[in-house]
């Protein structure tokens, strides 16, 4: 794809004391593409996106947004630069309504700090409808929604508040089959807008192949493979998922036990 990357990182290193969680990671994300970030548990995926989201500061390495070097000192900085993160726990409050969650921390207010509730209800409903869910009652508590609906709420919220890079941390991992597909459809609707880059973190090979345009594989804090869908063969993906080990080798090892 010819478009320039919206964001790119170079040589990102993150150390937690003596422990090196990331050891020089490069990554570039393009608008209108799904960039699948894959790797085993503990590979450093969450650490990488926490740096992109401004939660952690990198030990070294650089981040560029639209070719300008940036430094995120807080999640606020990252949000302002157009990085919208949807964490595994979604950062939703169960006891509160859809609308109150949608606008949490960024409420629309009129005179005396009064909430513009009708306006907020309408926006929350419309934004969620755009990416595929028609909620009948924006006053519904989030605790009563399905996992897929919650994902959609969190994604719609990030987009409404100006995300140009949407980071989804294992959005399908805690869901049932049907809801996983709903979330993948939602991602494709966002992708179809063309102006948003999606970073899709998963360790589900099938899901990544269904929606991914570009792939980066992490193992032990390092990139062990990267490329577009065309550049990578299906076999490659499986091998890289396993952290570089050949499935055939693994089968052999298992037999030896």
């Amino acid at each position: 794809m010819s478009k320039k990357p919206y964001m790119r990182v170079e040589g990102l290193v993150k150390k937690f004391g003596p422990f090196t969680a990331l050891n020089g990671v490069d990554l570039a994300v393009h608008p209108g593409e799904v960039h699948a970030l894959l790797g085993d548990n503990g590979a450093g995926k969450s650490t990488l996106i926490k740096i992109l989201a401004g939660v952690h500061e990198p030990t070294s390495g650089r981040i560029f947004v639209e070719d300008q070097p940036v430094q995120f000192r807080s999640p606020r900085d990252a949000t302002a630069a157009g990085i919208g993160t949807v964490y595994q726990d979604l950062a939703l409050n169960q006891l509160m309504s859809v609308t109150r969650n949608f606008f949490m921390g960024r409420e629309l207010k009129g005179a005396f700090g009064r909430l513009m509730m009708d306006e907020m209800d309408r926006i929350a409903h419309d934004e969620m409808l755009k990416i595929g869910i028609d909620i009948s009652d924006p006053g519904q508590a989030v605790g009563t929604m399905s996992g897929g609906q919650r994902q959609t709420l969190a994604i719609a919220r990030a987009i409404h508040f100006g995300a140009k890079v949407l980071i989804l941390d294992e959005p399908t991992s805690a869901l049932g089959q049907k809801q996983q597909m709903e979330v993948l459809k939602t991602m494709m609707r966002v992708r179809a807008r063309g102006d948003i880059a999606i970073i899709f973190i998963t360790h589900n090979e099938i899901h990544s192949k269904l929606v991914g345009d570009r792939f980066t594989f992490l193992a032990l804090g390092q990139v062990i493979g990267a490329g577009t869908k065309a550049e990578l063969e299906g076999e490659d993906i499986r091998r890289l998922m396993a952290g570089g080990a050949e499935i055939a080798d693994l089968e052999k090892e298992l037999e030896e036990i």
Binding site: P75, A91, N93, Q94, F103, G105, F112, L115
Partner: peptide, 21 residues
């Protein structure tokens, strides 16, 4: 009010409230 939303959000799950500013 906005402050009210913040009060609920703080008590419900302060980590997610904080993540949302």
């Amino acid at each position: 009010t906005q402050l009210g939303n913040w009060i609920y959000a703080t008590g419900d799950n302060k980590e997610s409230a904080r993540a949302n500013g």
